[in-house]
Amino acid sequence: MRIKPLLLRDGDDLELARRLRSRSISSGAAQRARIVLLASQGESNSSIAELVGVSRPTVISWRARYDVDGLAGLEDDARSGRPRSLDRREIVSATLMPPPKKYGVTHWSSRLLAKHLGIGYGTVARIWREYGVQPWRSETFKFSTDPELVAKVTDIVGLYLDPPENAIVLCVDEKSQIQALDRTAPTLPMQIGMPEKQTHDYIRNGTTTLFAALEIATGKVTGICRPRHRHQEFLVFLKHVARAYPKQELHLVMDNYATHKKAEVREWLAANPRIHVHFTPTSASWMNLVEVWFGIIERQAIHRGTFRSVRELTAKIREFINGWNPRAQPFVWTKTAEQILVKADRKTTSNSGH
């Protein structure tokens, strides 16, 4: 619905258009300029409110202020008292404190903190950049409470840095619940200037579990897929690994998952004394280098794949392993046991100090 256009003063249309293009003025000033320009084109107050994203009374207010005072009526009202100035350290200190409960948020945004302190949000954002403060980010950590932490870390790092002579060190684990996902429409291939595109929705076609053993000296992988990841499937995999290395002494690094410690598994290991097991500390599966390889196959073969069945998924996994092994490189461990234990001790001390 069109109403009587708001009459602009001479030259104001050019100034308002400049404000809309400018990157140096506040978003509020640009918003007011747009309101007045739309009003000058005969748009209704309701239409302007919808286009700009404000309330109808706000549109009426700024139209009236321009009508009376011109461009001067679009300026912010002067605030009483001296403009507030805060030391950088005060702003950083406020950032590190949790927001008051009245805001109902878990962390500060630059605009919310600026409003809370009565300063410009640009100032807050600039100081956050200077000091490397990032309230919107959160990371996780977990320290091991394993009573055998020192012994296990020393044992596994020793295997990595100084493996036994005439023996092979294998990092063993399973990547479970790998989904065979098919997109609801064909993937659009990459083109010059455009990335590959996939639909965001997908169809689930079942899951598989990949059991893998990474030989750290070469980077080669022995793997099989099974529908489930019980101790029965794990034992089948151990026998598969034993056949792949029929004569060598094997040292297997694995985590404390219950499947790995079942009586049947322990009995089979006892009957095969050339195979030695080394368990990672509790909550330290990151020490198992096959986890790094699982990340590689996920990124390079699974995440962007489309699979109409579990059979297609397992075929792709096998294809990746067959292509990986001829070009594999050793997986090199660099941290000493002392470095890991010092870091773990720091986290433990920090946590107990709170």
Rank of each mutant, 00 (worst) to 15 (best):
A49Q: 08
V157S: 07
T123F: 11
I25H: 10
T348Y: 05
C225H: 03
Q191G: 11
T199C: 14
V150C: 00
N166L: 01
Y103V: 02
V153W: 01
K101D: 15
A258F: 03
F331C: 11
A244V: 01
V54I: 15
H200Q: 13
E130A: 14
K102Q: 12
Q300T: 10
R183S: 13
D146F: 11
E139Y: 14
E90C: 07
L20F: 02
H240V: 08
R274M: 12
P227Y: 05
N166G: 02
V153G: 02
I321K: 02
L149F: 06
D10H: 07
N272P: 09
T280D: 10
I60R: 06
D13H: 04
M1G: 14
K239R: 12
N205S: 04
V150E: 06
H107M: 02
K335A: 15
R126L: 14
I3Q: 15
W108K: 00
L117A: 01
K152R: 15
V277R: 07
A270V: 08
R137H: 14
S80I: 08
T95R: 07
W268D: 11
I224T: 11
V241W: 00
W268E: 13
W286N: 08
V157E: 03
P147S: 14
Y103A: 04
I216S: 11
G132S: 00
D155E: 14
P5Y: 09
S55E: 14
K335D: 14
H303F: 06
A72P: 00
D10S: 06
L214N: 04
S285R: 02
A212G: 14
S109T: 15
V59T: 03
I127Y: 07
A78M: 13
E43W: 09
A78K: 13
H229C: 03
E291N: 05
T334V: 13
A263K: 13
E298K: 10
S55P: 01
W293F: 10
I127T: 14
D13M: 12
I25E: 03
I3N: 13
A39K: 03
S176V: 03
I340V: 15
K343E: 15
G104I: 06
R9I: 01
W128G: 06
L117P: 00
P273T: 09
